[in-house]
């Protein structure tokens, strides 16, 4: 899959991802041997890899640390940040390490095969494919419909989710949402209230681009198909207590704020 961030330091790098879901202080935390020395990502090897971390922190001397690592042949070959700050950015530019930012780290896994272009900001993940899915949060009054996924579906077996399914070619997210509601619950009369910003969720070698939709129905009669084993009409406060697919609650909260 390809995702476009922002170009920071020009150059192209191709290699494996080393992922640290935290902020990193190059001074003190990036060791001369090419490994992280302390904190949440202790021992992670970034040498010769495309090092993805949230952003820089700590000492403003960090720029020189990257230069020193480069001299030492123990630097990352590329850098990905969620949001770049000046210290890492300057370090990447003066050391000639390609760097991009604006990439959500939750689409990455350690050892992904990646190519970054530090000029255009483009990231290509060679081992990952992207699929678009619609996720419909369906309300009847103040109750939300959650479905307990069966063990026959291809992902997130036995977890609770909203009504979710692939967007077929030529379909809009709304059309896919209506179709999935009908297929998975038998409910026809839905009224789409709003749609949210699509967000990525990583599952094995797939990134699902989830298009969240908030909809209402007057019917509370549900006929499940094979994809689900159980349904519940719940109050949204109960969502936190269920074992759900990733970001189900967060995405609903964002959608309701719109």
């Amino acid at each position: 899959m390809i995702i476009n961030g922002r170009g920071i330091s020009p150059g192209v790098a191709k290699g494996k991802i080393a992922l640290c879901d935290d902020y990193v202080s190059p001074l003190g935390e990036m060791g001369k041997d090419g490994r992280i020395k302390s904190g949440k990502c202790e021992d992670l090897e970034f040498k010769g890899k495309i090092f993805a971390f949230r952003g820089g922190r700590g000492s403003t001397v960090g720029s020189y640390v990257l230069l020193e690592l480069k001299e030492n042949l123990t630097s990352p070959i590329g850098i990905i940040n969620e949001k770049a700050e000046l210290v890492v950015l300057t370090g990447a530019i003066i050391s000639g390490i390609p760097m991009i930012d604006g990439i959500p780290l939750n689409i990455l896994k350690n050892d992904d095969d990646a190519i970054i272009d530090g000029k255009s900001g483009r990231l290509e993940l060679l081992n990952v494919t992207q699929k678009d899915v619609s996720t419909v949060y369906l309300f009847h009054g103040d109750r939300l419909l959650v479905l307990h996924r069966s063990d026959k579906v291809s992902s997130y077996q036995n977890q609770f989710s909203a009504i979710s399914g692939h967007i077929e070619e030529g379909e809009t997210p709304e059309e896919a949402g209506r179709r999935e509601v009908l297929e998975e619950t038998g409910i026809e009369d839905i009224e789409i209230e709003k749609t949210g910003k699509p967000f990525p969720v990583r599952w094995e070698n797939i990134v699902y681009m989830v298009h969240p939709i908030l909809a209402r129905t007057k019917s509370d009669k549900v006929n499940l198909n094979w994809e689900n084993q159980e349904f519940r009409w719940i109050h949204i406060d109960e969502l936190g207590k269920l074992n759900t697919v990733p970001r189900l609650k967060e995405a609903l909260e964002e959608l309701m704020k719109l």
Binding site: L27, S59, T60, V61, S63, Y64, V65, L67, E68, L69, K70, E71, N72, I94, S95
Partner: peptide, 16 residues
């Protein structure tokens, strides 16, 4: 200016 101690900037920093 930060990056004055040799401990911090190393040989790479000196060249720069």
């Amino acid at each position: 200016i930060s990056g004055v101690s040799y401990k911090n900037i190393g040989d790479g920093g000196m060249k720069f």
